[in-house]
Design a binder for these strands. Structure first.
Lengths: 128, 128
DNA sequence: AAATATATACGAAATATTTCGTAATAAAAA
DNA sequence: TTTTTATTACGAAATATTTCGTATATATTT
C-alpha cells in the first residue's frame, strides 16, 4: 500500500499531466503546443508550471541536455482515482451509483460502451 | 434549452448549496452549523460566502426579517450535471465510460446498487 | 565572429478563493 | 433603560493559482 502524500494536481497541472500521459516524456515546447491547441497559452506560462510541478515532484526532469525533458512522476490511474474520489465526495456525497447514473443518463454513450460497462457489472457481481 | 450562463460554484460554494438542497431555505447560522460538523468554520466566513453567492445569483435571499433566509437559486440536477461534464472533460477527456468503469471498479458498490445501474443500462439500450 | 533564435531561471503581477476582524444595527434579556 | 446577544455589512488579509515579463545562457545561423 503506497501512501505518497496527496499530489493533488490543479486544473492546469492536470492538463499538462494529460499530455505527458498521452505522449510520454516531452519538452516544454511540445507540451505548450498541445495545450495551446485548446487554449492559447504563453510558453513561459507552461514552463513555469512545469518547473513548479517538478519541485512538487509531480514531474521528473531530465536536464542532461539543454532542452529539458519532463515526464509524469505520478501514475495516471492512481491520480484519476484520487481526483474521482474527491469529486465524488464533494458533488455526490460519495455515492458512486448516483454519479454513474447521472453520467450515463445524460451522455450519448454508444451501445458498445454500454456493453463494456455491463461486462464490468457481471464481473463485479461475480465477486460478491 | 436554457442557457443561464455558467454558475460554476466553487468548492466552498458547493458545500453551501448541498446544505440548502438537502434542507431547503436556511439561515446563515444553520448552514454554518451543518458545514462546521465536517470542518470547523467561522460564522462570518459562511456569511460572507453566502453574501457573495447572493450577488452572483447562486442564492436567493429573503431579507424581510432581520435574520435573512437564503435558498439555492440553481437546481441540484443541472448544477451537478454541469460539474460532472466539466470534471469528465478535464479528467477523462469526456469519456463517460472510462469514468464509470473507474468509479465502479474501485468502489464497494452494493449488489442492489449494481442492479440499479443494470436496469438503467437496459433502459438506455432499449432506446438505441 | 556577430546576429539571431531558443531555452531556462526567477520574480512578481494578476486572479481567484477563502477566511476573518471590526463596526454598525437590531433584538432580546436583565 | 441598560446590558447583553445575535445579525448583517464591509473591508481586507491570507492563500492558492495562473500568467507573463525580463534577464541570462546556450545553441544556431549568417
Amino acid at each position: 500500500m503506497k501512501h505518497t502524500q496527496i499530489p493533488k494536481p490543479t486544473e492546469s497541472e492536470l492538463e499538462i499531466l494529460q499530455v505527458l500521459w498521452d505522449h510520454g516524456a516531452s519538452t516544454v515546447r511540445f507540451v505548450n503546443e498541445q495545450i495551446s491547441e485548446k487554449k492559447e497559452t504563453g510558453y513561459t506560462t507552461t514552463l513555469k508550471l512545469m518547473q513548479i510541478m517538478h519541485v512538487k515532484e509531480l514531474l521528473t526532469r531530465d536536464d542532461s541536455t539543454r532542452t529539458h525533458v519532463f515526464d509524469a512522476a505520478i501514475s495516471e490511474g492512481e491520480t484519476k482515482q484520487k481526483l474521482l474520489d474527491k469529486f465524488l465526495d464533494a458533488t455526490f456525497r460519495g455515492s458512486a451509483t448516483q454519479l454513474v447514473m447521472q453520467a450515463l443518463g445524460n451522455s450519448k454513450t454508444s451501445k458498445a460502451e454500454l456493453n463494456q460497462i455491463r461486462e464490468l457489472l457481471d464481473q463485479l457481481e461475480g465477486g460478491k
